[in-house]
Design a binder for these strands. Structure first.
Length: 282
DNA sequence: ATCGGTACCTGCACGC
DNA sequence: TGCGTGCAGGTACCGA
């Protein structure tokens, strides 16, 4: 476990884990499933119309009385299958969170009263979305294979039919689903691949290495985040999250954990991108 | 068709 | 000290 200057710890506390990517949504799905499955929805209230991709009135009317049959995740989407065949889709955006039996706050955007408890949707920036459809909606249907489930062969094939920069492709939800800025940087570092490289620049071996690195970093994050995010669903705050330490993400200027060269930051597709110039040559 | 850039949104850090 | 500015990045959308 690395130690960081306290100012950096504060920054990590502020940002790390705040943006829900695949591991955070997976952990949330696992902790919520036993609480929600089989429960009837009694009442729904949308406080911020902006986050409702389905009209708030429709949501309230059509959700009342429904039973949550199953809960699943695809990419960064949380899918609640209801007893009438419809699907409630939740996306947490950048700052969204779900809390079971939590207290309402200034950023609470939606409330779901269920038998035996209340689910809160908090989202300061309101990039999250809630929608109800008769089947998995277009955004979900267009997702590529889930990043946790994609095979090495499929991973390589899908990347090789694209020409963009490798980091952009990793984050393109149609190529594969679930990877955001944090895990893209971390996976590329582990695979020693420059984020601006293009698939044509990379050997088969490197692409397979990237698949391994991505699987590893996602699984580690789920393992580390599991208990803490589960606590978070119950209460306020996320103690224990910092078991998972980022190696390059937001570590600009700090020594590379492998070679001590200062981590560098660049922009790719307007996103902050962190890499080691020595370990990840172009 | 594919890619890159921008809008949306808010809270925090930073600098004058 | 207080205020203005920039930055963070999820998806959708637009134009080249």
């Amino acid at each position: 476990m690395e130690t960081y200057p306290s100012s950096f710890a504060a920054r990590l506390r502020l940002y790390a884990g705040e943006v829900p990517e695949l591991p955070e949504v997976e952990t949330l799905a696992r902790s919520l499933a036993p609480r929600l499955r089989g429960r009837r929805i009694l009442r729904v209230r949308i406080l911020a119309p902006r986050i409702a991709a389905t009209a708030p009135r429709q949501l309230s009317l059509r959700l009342r009385g429904r039973i949550i049959a199953a809960l699943s995740r695809k990419g960064k989407y949380l899918l609640l299958s209801l007893d009438d065949g419809s699907v409630l889709t939740l996306h947490l955006g950048m700052t969204g969170s779900l809390r079971w039996n939590g207290r309402c706050g200034p950023h609470t955007r939606a409330l779901f009263w269920l038998e035996g408890g209340r689910l809160l949707f908090d989202d300061p920036r309101q990039f999250g979305r809630i929608r109800l459809d008769s089947a998995p909606p277009a955004p979900v249907a267009q997702l590529g294979p889930d990043a946790l489930e994609i095979t090495p062969a499929e991973f390589v094939a899908r990347l090789r039919q694209r020409r963009g920069r490798i980091k952009s492709l990793l984050m393109d939800q149609r190529v594969l689903a679930g990877v955001g800025n944090i895990y893209a940087d971390e996976a590329l570092f582990r695979a020693r691949i420059h984020p601006a490289a293009r698939p044509a620049d990379l050997s088969l071996r490197q692409l397979r290495q990237l698949h391994r690195a991505l699987s590893a970093v996602l699984r580690e994050a789920i393992a580390a985040g599991g208990s803490s995010v589960s606590d978070y669903v119950d209460a306020d705050g996320r103690p224990g999250w910092f078991q998972f330490a980022h190696r390059v993400y937001r570590r600009t200027g700090l020594p590379c954990p492998r070679c001590r060269t200062p981590i560098r930051r660049m922009l790719i597709a307007q996103r902050g991108t962190h890499y080691c110039p020595r370990c990840q040559p172009l």
